[in-house]
Amino acid sequence: MAKQDLEQLIQGRDLNELVAEFRAKTTGQHSPALQRLINRIRSEPMTGKLALLCTKPHEEWRLVQMNGRGKPMTLLDGIFHDLNDAEWAIFKLRMKRHFDIDLQD
């Protein structure tokens, strides 16, 4: 996705602030610009979608890539013990995938 699309999504807000907002609270009500941004990057089709597979109930989640209806998912590197950390990892990967932006922890 082109950089100008990102500008359209965040409409003048400081991207670093939005990233910090997401890192601090991944779920629930977000600021309008952050919500627009995550709506856009979460609109991935099922084929190629990043998701999580729960490997131990309420304890462990594995990063996966969906490969479409009926097709086995691909297990990726990335094991998490906190859903917020997992959300953050997916967010970073999508910022790279969609906008070629590298985010650091």
């Binding site: 779920t27 979608k49 990043l50 597979l53 998912m73």
Partner: peptide, 9 residues
């Protein structure tokens, strides 16, 4: 969902 998709076995 407005959150990451978590799948179960």
């Amino acid at each position: 969902l407005n959150r990451a998709l978590v799948l179960h076995p």
